[in-house]
Simulated assay, not measured.
Amino acid sequence: MVLRQNILISGASSGLGEGMAREFAARGRNLALCARRIERLDELAAELRSAYPGITVATRALDVTDHAQVFAVFGEFRTELGSLDRVVVNAGLGKGQPVGSGRFDANRQTLETNLLGAVAQIEAAAGIFREQRTGHLAVISSFMALRGFPRNLTAYSASKAGISAFAEDARLELSRHGITVTDVRPGYIRSEMTDRSSARNPLMVSAETGVRALVKAIEAEPKRAYVPAWPWVPLSVAVRLAPARLLRRFA
């Protein structure tokens, strides 16, 4: 297994991004952390530098829907750290609304962030990795990329299906350049995004359990990973075969 020392994580100011930053820092990795909320990033960076004085933690404010800024920030991180060994494309939204409910604005924002924003990050990272002739892209998609889902998940699942397809396309293109691409598909992991839902979900795992599983999967660098493996690997088979009426239970 290749040691990826310098790791960029987008959306690192909270939730899974923050959790992965903590886990990678504990493993002695240097971090490039970006998100819209720079104050929270800087607080996290100060905490990690104090806890792990041997690592470097760089931060930048970044809105991934500003595509020019994505390329600029990724380039700045590469200059500051000397190289980027892994990029975790994590920034995302989960604020979609039912189709035809008058909330195209929410669905558009979800698609712009989760799909176009992620594509911009993949492009920026791939350009750097091509020059280096090595690198690992870990694209945080979702279990919801498997099928279409109703209600508030419609735009979200569409955006994740799109970015999973793009990640597969990128893998086919980039493997000959020494670049590895992993499509990471988390199930229900507790975070700020999932905490907005008041519904009790028996499949939800704690942030700590989910983040450990995410980092373990990313470190292994498979083509695709359902996280945590149980129960999401067997569920991935069941959901592919399930009649559409049963999919409403996931929404």
Rank of each mutant, 00 (worst) to 15 (best):
residue 4 R to N: 14
residue 6 N to W: 01
residue 8 L to K: 00
residue 9 I to N: 05
residue 14 S to V: 10
residue 21 A to W: 04
residue 22 R to A: 02
residue 23 E to T: 12
residue 25 A to M: 08
residue 25 A to H: 06
residue 33 L to S: 02
residue 33 L to V: 02
residue 37 R to N: 15
residue 38 I to G: 00
residue 38 I to H: 03
residue 38 I to D: 03
residue 44 L to S: 02
residue 44 L to N: 00
residue 58 A to D: 10
residue 60 R to H: 15
residue 62 L to G: 05
residue 63 D to V: 07
residue 64 V to T: 12
residue 68 A to S: 04
residue 69 Q to M: 12
residue 70 V to Q: 09
residue 79 T to Y: 06
residue 83 S to Q: 13
residue 89 V to T: 01
residue 91 A to V: 03
residue 94 G to V: 09
residue 94 G to C: 06
residue 97 Q to H: 10
residue 102 G to N: 11
residue 105 D to M: 13
residue 107 N to C: 14
residue 109 Q to W: 03
residue 113 T to P: 07
residue 113 T to Y: 11
residue 114 N to M: 06
residue 115 L to F: 13
residue 115 L to W: 08
residue 117 G to Q: 07
residue 120 A to W: 12
residue 125 A to D: 04
residue 125 A to F: 05
residue 125 A to K: 04
residue 126 A to F: 01
residue 128 I to P: 05
residue 133 R to I: 02
residue 136 H to E: 06
residue 139 V to W: 10
residue 143 F to Y: 12
residue 144 M to T: 12
residue 145 A to G: 10
residue 146 L to K: 09
residue 149 F to K: 06
residue 155 A to S: 15
residue 155 A to H: 10
residue 157 S to C: 14
residue 158 A to V: 14
residue 159 S to P: 07
residue 162 G to W: 10
residue 164 S to Y: 09
residue 165 A to S: 15
residue 167 A to C: 11
residue 172 L to D: 14
residue 176 R to E: 12
residue 179 I to F: 10
residue 179 I to N: 05
residue 181 V to M: 06
residue 183 D to E: 01
residue 183 D to T: 09
residue 184 V to D: 00
residue 184 V to G: 02
residue 185 R to E: 04
residue 187 G to W: 00
residue 187 G to P: 00
residue 190 R to E: 15
residue 192 E to Q: 13
residue 196 R to T: 15
residue 200 R to Y: 11
residue 201 N to I: 03
residue 203 L to S: 01
residue 204 M to H: 04
residue 204 M to Y: 04
residue 205 V to E: 04
residue 205 V to G: 03
residue 215 V to S: 00
residue 215 V to Q: 00
residue 216 K to F: 08
residue 220 A to N: 13
residue 221 E to D: 15
residue 225 A to D: 06
residue 226 Y to R: 09
residue 228 P to M: 12
residue 232 W to F: 15
residue 232 W to R: 06
residue 234 P to H: 11
residue 235 L to W: 03
residue 239 V to E: 08
residue 240 R to W: 04
residue 240 R to V: 04
residue 240 R to Q: 14
residue 241 L to F: 13
residue 245 R to I: 00
residue 246 L to M: 14
residue 251 A to M: 07
residue 251 A to G: 08
